[in-house]
Design a protein around this nucleic acid. Sequence first.
DNA 1: CATGAATGAGATTTCATTCAT
DNA 2: AATGAATGAAATCTCATTCAT
Lengths: 182, 182, 182, 182
Amino acid sequence: MRADARRNRDRIVEAARAVVAERGIDAPMELIARRAEVGVGTVYRRFPDRHALIAAMADQYIHEIADALTRAEESGDGAMAAVRSFVVWCGDQGRGALAAALADLPQELFEEMREFVTVRANMVERLEALVATAQERGEMRADVGADDLMALLNIFACHPTPRGEHYLRIMLDGIDNSSRHH
Amino acid sequence: MRADARRNRDRIVEAARAVVAERGIDAPMELIARRAEVGVGTVYRRFPDRHALIAAMADQYIHEIADALTRAEESGDGAMAAVRSFVVWCGDQGRGALAAALADLPQELFEEMREFVTVRANMVERLEALVATAQERGEMRADVGADDLMALLNIFACHPTPRGEHYLRIMLDGIDNSSRHH
Amino acid sequence: MRADARRNRDRIVEAARAVVAERGIDAPMELIARRAEVGVGTVYRRFPDRHALIAAMADQYIHEIADALTRAEESGDGAMAAVRSFVVWCGDQGRGALAAALADLPQELFEEMREFVTVRANMVERLEALVATAQERGEMRADVGADDLMALLNIFACHPTPRGEHYLRIMLDGIDNSSRHH
Amino acid sequence: MRADARRNRDRIVEAARAVVAERGIDAPMELIARRAEVGVGTVYRRFPDRHALIAAMADQYIHEIADALTRAEESGDGAMAAVRSFVVWCGDQGRGALAAALADLPQELFEEMREFVTVRANMVERLEALVATAQERGEMRADVGADDLMALLNIFACHPTPRGEHYLRIMLDGIDNSSRHH
DNA sequence: CATGAATGAGATTTCATTCAT
DNA sequence: AATGAATGAAATCTCATTCAT
C-alpha cells in the first residue's frame, strides 16, 4: 500500500493548493480532505497538523520557482535576460493565494521547514550570482539585491491583477539600466 | 446622549483599526469591543455586522489618502513631483493590515459603501489630472494610468517591508522618464 | 443579568458533579452543558477549559470536607471521637467519582488551584491538631499523621463499596489504641 | 508459525501492561501496537477489541496474585502470618494502573472472562480457608471475610502511594487480634 | 441605550476499528 | 498472517451574533 499512500499524499497536497487558492490559508481541513476524496483522518495521518500541510505546499512551491530559475539560467541569453525571463515567469503563474498564504505564515514556522529554507537559500544564491554579473556589466542598477528581487516578486505574486504583468515590466524597467521606455 | 453615541462610534472604529492591525481582519469582535472599552452589544448596535465596521474603517482610510493627495497637489512642485510625494506618503504609513483587509473584501460589498466609493472616485479623478499633466510634459511614461498607480500603491500597502520605500522608488524610477539611476 | 449568570454558574458546577459521578472525569463537556440545560458556549464562558471546571468542583468538594471537620471539632466529644466522626462522615458521602477524578488530576494543575490548596492546607492543619491531642492522650497510635488520614480517606473515597463503612471502621480500629474488637 | 503467533500474543499483552501503566486504560491501541513492535492490525487479529486485550491482562494479573497466595501458604508460618505476607506482597507491586483499569471494567465483561473468574474463585477459596483458620485460632477478627480482604487489597492496589505499605499494615493491625501497636 | 450572557454552528484534532495489499 | 492506510465519529474549543436585563 506504499503506492496508494504516496498517491494519496500527492492528491492531498494538490487539493490543498486548490482549496487554499479559492478559500485562503484558513480553509477548513475537511474541505481539503473532501477535495482530495479522502477522509479527514487521512489528511491528519500524513500531516500531523495544518502547518505540516502548509509546509508541504511550500516545498512544492519553492521547487517550482527554483526550477524556473534553472530554466532561466540555462536559456543562455545573458544575466539580465535571465533575470527578466525569471521575473516574467514568476509573474505569470496563478500562485497568488499560495504566495499570500505563505507570506503571512508566522515567522517561527519557517524554522521547522528545513526543505523549504534550504531550497530557497540555494535559489537566492544563484539569483545573487546573476544579479552580480548583470551589475558588473552595468546592465542592472547597483542598489538592488537578489533578496530585493525575491521580495518584489513575492509582493506581486501575492496580488494577482489583470495588469500584473505590466507592473512587473515597470519594475524591471526601474531596475534595468539598458531599458528606456517606448 | 448623541455626543456619547458619537464618541462611542469613533472609539469603536479606532479600536477596530488597532486590533485589525495586530490580529488581522478576522480578529474577534469581542476583542475590538474590549479595546474600545465597550460591550459587544454596543459594537453591533452601531455596525449591524462585521462588514459595516470594515466599511467604516475604509471610509476613514480613503479620507486619509485623499487628504494626502490634496497636500501633494498643493506642494506646488509640479505634477510628477506631486505624484512622487503622494506615492511615498502612501508607502510610508503603517496601514498594511487594513489595506490588505480591504483588498480581500468581497467586491459586492463596495456597492453599499457609498461614501468610500465617492471619495475614491473623486481622488482618482484628481490623480488622473496629475498624471495627464505629467505625461503631457513627457515626465511620465505614457502607458501608466491613475488606476495603475492606485493598484500599485495598494499592492505595496498590503505588504509592509523594511525596504518598502526603496521598492516604491524603484517602481517610480520605472515610471518616471526624467529619472536615470545613480 | 448578574443573578442569572451566577445561577448558571452554579448549575454548571452541579451538573458537572453529577455527570462526572456517572461518566468519570473525561465526560464530554457537551453532556455537562446539556445536563445544566445550557449551551456548551456558556460552559466555556464560565470555565475557559476543562481544568477550570474541575477546579471549581474541587473547591466545592474541599469546602464540604472542611465543613465536616468543623462540625466534628465542635461536637465536643474529645479529639479521638472527633476524628472518628469526621472519618465516618467522609466515608458516608457519595463522592467517589469526584474524589477519584481529583486523584488522577496531573499534579501540576493543583498549582493553579489556589482556593483548593489553601482550604485544604488549613483543614489539614486543624486535623493535625486533633491528631496531636489524641496521640498525647495515648488514644491514637503515634505513627499516623493527618496527612496519612487524608490519604486513607481519599483512597476509600475513590472506591465506594457496599462494605466501605466497615472498612473505614477497620482502619479506625487499626489506629485507635482504645478500641478492642467486639 | 504457531510459535511466532504465540510470541506476538505475549509481546502484545506485555506491551499493553507497560503502556497502560504509563498512560492509563485509555491508551491508544496504536501505542500498544508500536510498543509491541507490531502493526495495529495484528493486535486486532489477536484481540477482537480493547476489552479482549484487557481481559488478557487481567488473566495474567490474577495468575500472579494466585501465585503469590500459593507462596504465602507454603511459607509455613501459620495462617495469620500467611495472610500478612500475602497482603504485603499485593501492596508491594507496581500494578496500580492495571488494578484500577480492571476495577472500572463494566461488570458484564467478567462474564466472558472464564479464565479470570475461575482462577479468582479458586484463589478466594484458598484465602477463605486461611481466614477461617486464623479466626478459629482467634488471631483474626471475626467480621472480616476473604472477600473483604480482596476488596481492601484491590482498593489499595488502585492507589499506589509512597506510604502504601504503611497503610496496609494499619489495616492489618485493625484485623489482627494478636497485634498491639508499638 | 449599553451591557455582557447565552447560544450553537463550525473548525481542529484524535483514535478505535476496518480492510486493501 | 501481518501490516499500516483509511475512515469517520466524537470531543474540544472558538466566535459571530442575538437578546434578556
